[in-house]
Design a protein around this nucleic acid. Sequence first.
DNA 1: CGCGTAGTAGTACGTTTGTACATGTACGGA
DNA 2: TCCGTACATGTACAAACGTACTACTACGCG
Lengths: 186, 186
Amino acid sequence: MTGRRNPGERRRRMIEAACELIPEVGVNGLTHRLVAARAGVPLGATTYYFASLDDLVAAALARAAEVTEEALRLWHEELGRSADVPATLAALTADYLRERDRMVTWNELYAAAAHRPELRPLARLWLDGLTRSLSGHAGARAARAAAVFVDGALLHSLINDEPLDTESLERSLAALLGMDAAMDTT
Amino acid sequence: MTGRRNPGERRRRMIEAACELIPEVGVNGLTHRLVAARAGVPLGATTYYFASLDDLVAAALARAAEVTEEALRLWHEELGRSADVPATLAALTADYLRERDRMVTWNELYAAAAHRPELRPLARLWLDGLTRSLSGHAGARAARAAAVFVDGALLHSLINDEPLDTESLERSLAALLGMDAAMDTT
DNA sequence: CGCGTAGTAGTACGTTTGTACATGTACGGA
DNA sequence: TCCGTACATGTACAAACGTACTACTACGCG
């Protein structure tokens, strides 16, 4: 297709391979050799394109964050045109609960960020973005609380075979989003 | 004190060292040598007392789970004699938010359990225990939702320098625990 | 066309890893 | 008292690691 020589594509392939590998072996389980094998490139390519293994990991996590931001945009739109915000949010969450790899990856990012502060802004993306989207439909407190709850539900599903059902999600989110309906919104 | 020869104590020291190390280097960052150095025992001791590194890690996580169960008992008592359950739960959570190492360790357990199913029962301990405690004060749905929210708040504090304030916690928990006050409790 | 640069590929090296093992020492039961 | 067993400790080793390096090849620019 693109012939043999294709720097951008090779770099992309390695990042993609790293993203694939993270749910399988964890962030700390990544090695040059594992990524090279998965991407179908020689070992040397990994050090040619990334100054260090940390750089490769960072690139992979940044890519994962891009995917998350994409989802965030989708959620924002969906919530924008929704008549019943809690129900829509519950449905979106319930769908997301099924994409295990995404959530494992995201939790790996959380764990990595707990040890490496420079990753924290990346890790905050999801929660902050979701809070911002919900701020259009509830007070600041309620929005953040709902976002925290959604994150908790995602975490919960990593550990439990049976995740929270849609009805529970909907009731909980309705309660949280409506909690300071007639109050100040600090 | 106990003289030199003291198997139980040595084993305990190594597990304690591993527990100390987990918040610093992560579960996957643990090595025999690191644990041995921290515990002040020769390298050989680690393989004498633990069949493999995985066993050592499992023992450390099991110890962390014991500490968690202790906290769980405390929470259960405190909630039992409370007149205002949401306020008490919010206060307990706010206190817990300050113990960063505990939470990092617990999140490491979550991440590890996502890859190794045999750790999942251990990881479920906290959420299930908290849900059980809350079941005495709310419907099953509300109890689980509140537990999920607390877990989300703990996770949130790993990433954000400013964790949720007590008032937000209290309002959120009150909303969740009271959400199906006059409804069925499936 | 020729040539320099950027990409490709294989290999080598020094370190650190998990684990095995050989040797030494204290202690409890006979 | 003596001895076997359980514990202690230092060292050894193969594997896997991150990374550096050398040689080779294609492509764009003069």
